[in-house]
């Protein structure tokens, strides 16, 4: 989810959501950057209207099917 937070941070600042920017933000948090994840996210976000997407109905975290441990 950290990459999504980074994307939202960029979006909020009206910065471009590209691989370099996301990588920079994540790196600044002190974490290692998984390039594949960054690439995948940027590709997935390409066609998405972020402003609309974040307004979507709330989604619960509770996932009865998949035990997380």
């Amino acid at each position: 989810m950290e990459y999504v937070y980074a994307a939202l941070l960029l979006h909020k600042q009206k910065k471009e959501i590209n691989e370099a920017n996301i990588a920079n933000v994540v790196k600044a948090s002190g974490a290692e950057v998984n390039e594949a994840q960054v690439k995948a996210l940027v590709a997935a976000l390409a066609d998405v209207n972020i402003e609309e997407a974040i307004k979507a109905a709330p989604v619960a975290v509770a996932a009865p099917a998949a035990p997380s441990g």
Binding site: L45, I54, K55, A56, V59
Partner: peptide
């Protein structure tokens, strides 16, 4: 969460 889901990420 909403963004991740809408984007299929």
């Amino acid at each position: 969460r909403s963004l991740a889901i809408e984007a299929g990420f």
